[in-house]
Write a protein that binds this DNA or RNA. Structure first.
Lengths: 186, 186
DNA sequence: TTATACTATGTCAAGACTTACATATGTAAT
DNA sequence: ATTACATATGTAAGTCTTGACATAGTATAA
């Protein structure tokens, strides 16, 4: 089982989805922490089915092309639950911008400022997106009791992480821009 | 040019290093944001040399095996500087733990608590490491003026990012544990 | 009717990355 | 002596991932 396999099982644990649906999910908060293209998803679904983790049924549609709806099996759910509480191997971070920051002394200050201002803006926008989603998430569940076993709670936990991550990222970019401005003045 | 290529050029821009040295650097703050094994580094150095980005000289050593010292060329430095201020393609994040959080409602609360407590501890330790490095970094440069063109400033910028990242990560884990505890009490 | 876009499913080649294999020198401890 | 460890440099097999190629049904608007 690959991590992508678990990611797909996790999404299918909520409700049956097609490969196309799963690819769309990659644009939502979940996907922001584990992205995959459809070219990786379709083969992975085939593998999951071969391993008995999911089954599929062809659904005929009249307003659009037919699709294969994938459903998680008992075995798939058991495998997912087991993985869920297994100690995670450290996932190494890869961030090209930090790499650029490392050698920023070699760059032209004005260009460096432009770069980090642009990055700050990008992450500010992503942060705003998350905050809107979070708002929407809270309103949906404001009346009922909203707990770990509620559907959509996973999104809430994920969003909280995304917001924290982006908030910190924005601050870091702004901090670098500040220093670059001071440096280029002197 | 791959990102790893730029990462190696970035390290070589400070001083000549061997492939082994570069692999060791991957354990320092820089490496935390772009890791690579020696099996990837050696071929990449060969590629960089073929592209005229670096040259190497064999250095004989009597207390240990001989080594190849790689030095960045003018062309390499120019390429690095150009890359430095080029808009970065978003680097997608991959974090298995966030994926697990997404489906945490399916897990046994006690096991989930244990998992996130362990993760919190791990990131708390990483945070402490960074803070020690930062302390060391600040002391080294406390007397002189410490600016973008100072050697070691890149480490400072990188460390600041690492500290922010880990601090936020620890908070997120603690927040999840808190909620899990409340949930399992009820 | 033509173009554009969205839905839907796949394959393939190339590159990135990991794990394991492979070799060799020198130091320090048992 | 032998073992273990750090230094030092590589290769090879296999997996993960991306980007491009490929096909096809339906809807909407110009």
């Amino acid at each position: 089982m690959t991590t992508l396999g678990y990611a797909l099982l996790g999404l299918l644990a909520e409700r049956p989805l097609s490969g196309y649906d799963l690819a769309q999910q990659m644009k939502t908060p979940v996907g922001f922490f584990w992205h995959a293209r459809h070219s990786q998803i379709y083969p992975e679904l085939a593998r999951l089915e071969a391993d008995g983790m999911v089954t599929h049924a062809v659904v005929e549609q009249y307003d659009r092309p037919d699709k294969k709806l994938y459903t998680i099996t008992e075995a798939g759910l058991a495998t997912l639950k087991e993985w869920l509480v297994t100690p995670t191997a450290i996932t190494p971070i890869r961030d090209e911008l930090v790499l650029k920051a490392y050698n920023l002394g070699l760059a032209d200050p004005q260009q460096a400022i432009a770069l980090f201002r642009a990055e700050e803006l990008r992450h500010r926008e992503q942060l705003a997106n998350y905050e809107v989603s979070m708002e929407w998430c809270m309103q949906t569940y404001s009346s009922e009791q909203f707990r770990f076993d509620s559907p959509g709670y996973g999104n809430y936990l994920t969003l909280r992480r995304g917001i924290g991550y982006e908030r910190e990222y924005v601050e870091w970019c702004a901090w670098i821009v500040e220093q670059l401005e001071e440096y280029s003045k002197s």
